[in-house]
Amino acid sequence: MQQKKVRVLVLRAAGINCDAEMVTAWEKAGAEVDLKHINEIAGPQANTNLDDYSILGIPGGFSYGDNLGAGKLLANELIFRLKEPFSRFVESGRPVLGVCNGFQILAKTGVFGDMTLLPNESGKFECRWTSLQNTGSNSIFLRGIDQIYLPVAHGEGRVAFGDGAKAEVSLKYCDPDGNTQAAYPWNPNGSVSNAGGVSNASGTVIGMMPHPERFVSAWQHPNWTRQKTKEVEGAGLKFFKNAVDYAGREL
């Protein structure tokens, strides 16, 4: 029996706009969630200590307008304003989830080494549902997930690796048959190796372009009106439950 709820910090800053959905998802997964502006964690008005939390969630949006490249400016704030607490958080093995802009932010902090996200191959922002397959990675977020249907909505989601990448591709875009070589539109952005999500070596940090927090209720599925028996919950909730279970058990 769990005595205390797992505490999750969801980060926001100017332009983050998927924070409310992410808070809902963590709450549905049984966590106690605080939504905090970066100025509440760093700087003169800080009142929050990252060390007090077991999980960090970085939601999607357009932090600082994605000016200078998606996620770059908020990544720099993590590097330059929160360097020590952020590194400590990651190194202590506490789960970090970055979704969409959150993934772009994580990537640009260098947590995955030489890895970045480039503008989509189509040259366009794309909002659509696609499928992803678990590559069998050790990610603590992916336990029990084999193939999953999730929405993407981004303009800069094309994963590219440099020589010094420290990331494992843990989720690959695929077609409904599970083919991870599937081209556009299943691979909506032209990512190398169909990479839709990457993890660090220990599997505690995941960055992913698809939005699991947008599929935590059956009614969010694009085809729910076609299904006669409705699912009880959205499949995306599994990511959040996995992390909360892990944190409750291991930390």
């Binding site: 998927c18 922002f125 794309e126 909002c127 927090e213 947008r214």
Partner: peptide
């Protein structure tokens, strides 16, 4: 339609 995010806010 696809260049607009029509799913944000869930």
């Amino acid at each position: 339609i696809r260049v607009y995010d029509h799913e944000v806010q869930g």
